[in-house]
Amino acid sequence: MLTEAKKNIKLIGMYFKFNLYSSMEYRASFIIQVLGMIINNGSFIFFWWILFENVESIGGYGFKDVMMLWAISSTAFGLSHVIFGNVRRITEIIMTGELDSYLLQPKDVLVNLISSRTIISAWGDMFYGIILFIGVNGLNISDFMLFLLFNCTAALFFTSILVIANSLTFFIGNAEGIAGLISEFMITFSIYPEGIYKGIAKLVIYSVVPAAFVSLIPVRIINNFSIKWLLILFVFVILWSVFAYWFFYRGLKKYESGNLIVNKL
């Protein structure tokens, strides 16, 4: 179990180096995409600035708190797509049969599959989040360490949810629409103040679309340290990751039985 985990981490590291090196081959495109993403994300600062020109606080959040939400979501989303860039393509990989190549390699299929590619613009998301965090929070080492920790947990949430959503393809056929939508839900829910969510929405962000664990709880912990919420966060990130892993392999069994392949003929 432990050697298996070590091997997987080694594999992820190797792909990371390899992908970084190959992104650097196209330096101009890399810079354009990264800057483009930073501008893209930065435009939301404008939106919140105008809003806070009109009101002092929204759902108990001030401008700085909303920017912290943004910093964590953006960095974590970037991190998950830099390291596990193929996570969004799982559906396509299943549908086109590209999955076969991964099945024929002596590595963990899921880990091999999702980490074998990177999304270049995700570097922009990552840089943007880090700059934003330091910009609004200053350089406080303990806060920054917490920030890094929460980026890792949030990246695992993003990855797990995308793995689960895309693995639906094994069961219902092309799940690209649903997966895209769920990814949109995760991102959007995680960048608005928690106070605006009432009723069903509140239930949703703590359960099926665990956006609360991505950024809302982390910001609460950074502002007001609580060991209890930290532990809850750890438990949930482990549960979701394990479930995502299990769910993918459950679907893979169906793929190996072959019934999926013929469905699309």
Partner: peptide, 11 residues
């Protein structure tokens, strides 16, 4: 629009 509704309702 639902997110916007929640946001603006709060405001």
């Amino acid at each position: 629009i639902y997110i916007m509704l929640m946001l603006w309702t709060n405001i």
